[in-house]
Nucleic acid binder design. Structure first.
Lengths: 298, 298
DNA sequence: TAAAAATACTCCATAGGTATTTTAT
DNA sequence: ATAAAATACCTATGGAGTATTTTTA
């Protein structure tokens, strides 16, 4: 049995006239009669009662017609679903991100992706840099938002966001009255930072600009969450250096101050990159990647 | 697109190897490659990612595979439904019957039909003789259980049940002590019968045997329902002559007595026939007809 | 008698086969 | 070097066309 048989059957069933049906199918009447006969022989039951002068569906033919119609609808749907999936308009994507991405690039990308591809299911995982790399390789996530540098030959990456660093001070700190902070003036301060291994891409530049300003920061506390660092600063436990986008989440007891330009060159040092498997060419991943690159802020 | 393409696609999708898939399909590898290429061209999207050494489904291919598998399941089901319908194992049948059929042949037929064809939907309509004939012609019922004679060239009929007539008497009637009743002894009684036009096939034989016994019954009351006649007899309103199967529904205050053989020849006078449209050759109707004829009681 | 489906046959498009090439491991 | 898909080309099955017959309303 082939779809041809079913297409012909449907036409004869709607026309109830072999001649007209053949005409609409752009074939001659005898081959149509033959094909219907072949179909009936294969099915093992009669589809039509022919009386040389009139054609009618048998009860079995009526039942079969309903089913066949649904089959063609289902086939159309299958083609449409496949086409949409191939264009990345349908499917699933898993995105990993470091916590600090929630203050800048991530909301922008998610909003736009949802608008453009409303039928793609998005799965979000807040993960540390090292976990993201593992999950990416294992295929548990398709996209990672990580602060470089990262070296992995199986992964592709592109910088999508760069921002300056700012100093976070308790409101009552003696430097809080200034509009910009000279980095060297923080030499004697107690610092609250991330553990280096969880976010080397953010930790290392901070240490580097301090070194350039002539001191090594004294780290008194390490916190996994950026919000916790802010809390501790507000509690007068020390000061911190954070990406500028942390200012999106204002908090009582803390003020953020730009670092005086030139003092250690703190401009655009906090970098966010998008990572993906080079072997992955799935449409949804490619659509998200395209969108992320369109929204680059460097 | 033909089912061939979909069958081939399914095999390649499960084997993920053109050579092995071709082998299982009993065709050579090159034509298989060609057919899949043709399918992809028609669909407008890639089903597989081939790297000369390995074959994998694209996301679109995965989605399409799920749908195609369901299509084949639906096709199998369509064939099965058609086959069952052609055998009369599936479908619908509408049966009309006169009230008096509920005491004899109808329960037997329904029971057996339900057992044999459990998936056929049965629709029952208690209708008078004339309404059944109209509904039969209009196709609102497929089978009628009617007491003949009926003349209609578009309908076929077969006698399926014949029974004797009995006399229904109030328990305190002076003839109720006898085991059989001589019909002529009822000449002076008040009779309760059906209206003739609603059941001529039952009314006319009753009048006929009374005439043969030498009298014309005095009808004092006409009732549409047989149960109502029995009620009135029990209430001493008169006597009646009814089909023997009324005894199935025993009732206080009424006794049934056979008519003395030879006295007007009352044997097997109440006849039930099955009627159908001659133009109807639907499998369910034929199955029910077969079954009714198997259960003939003459 | 005419309309419509079925038969009988003929032809050619294309599914499928064979031989070979290409390419990635 | 080898396995596996693609390409090139050939063969033949069967789908479709034409002419004709059969049937019944």
């Amino acid at each position: 049995m082939e779809l041809r048989h079913l297409r012909y059957f449907r036409m004869v069933a709607t026309e109830l006239h072999f001649g007209r049906a053949a005409e609409k199918l752009h074939i001659a009447q005898p081959p149509l009669s033959k094909q219907i006969q072949d179909l009936e022989a294969e099915l093992g039951f009669e589809l039509f009662t022919r009386t040389k002068r009139s054609v009618a569906l048998t009860p079995a033919g009526q039942v079969f017609l309903v089913e066949v119609t649904q089959i063609f609808q289902k086939l159309d749907r299958a083609i449409d679903l496949g086409r949409k999936t191939s264009r990345g308009e349908l499917g699933k994507i898993s995105i990993g991100f470091v916590g600090s991405a929630t203050y800048n690039i991530l909301p922008v990308i998610l909003q736009q992706f949802r608008d453009r591809y409303p039928y793609v299911q998005i799965e979000l995982h807040e993960l540390t840099t090292d976990r993201q790399l593992i999950w990416l390789r294992e295929g548990r996530i398709d996209i990672g938002l990580i602060r470089p540098p990262v070296i992995d030959v199986y992964l592709g990456s592109q910088v999508i966001f760069q921002e300056s660093l700012v100093v976070a001070l308790p409101t009552n700190h003696h430097l809080a009255v200034l509009t910009t902070i000279e980095l060297s003036s923080l030499a004697a301060e107690r610092f609250i930072l991330f553990p280096r291994q969880l976010a080397p891409g953010l930790y290392d530049p901070i240490i580097a600009i301090c070194q350039a300003a002539g001191f090594s920061p004294q780290v008194v506390q390490e916190c996994i969450q950026m919000q916790t660092i802010v809390s501790l600063v507000s509690a007068n436990m020390g000061v911190s250096i954070l990406p500028a986008s942390i200012q999106e989440a204002q908090r009582q007891g803390v003020v953020y101050k730009p670092i005086r330009s030139g003092s250690g060159a703190a401009d655009k040092l906090a970098t966010m990159s998008i990572f993906w498997r080079l072997s992955d060419d799935s449409p949804t991943m490619n659509r998200l990647l395209e969108l992320a690159l369109e929204n680059r802020e460097l």
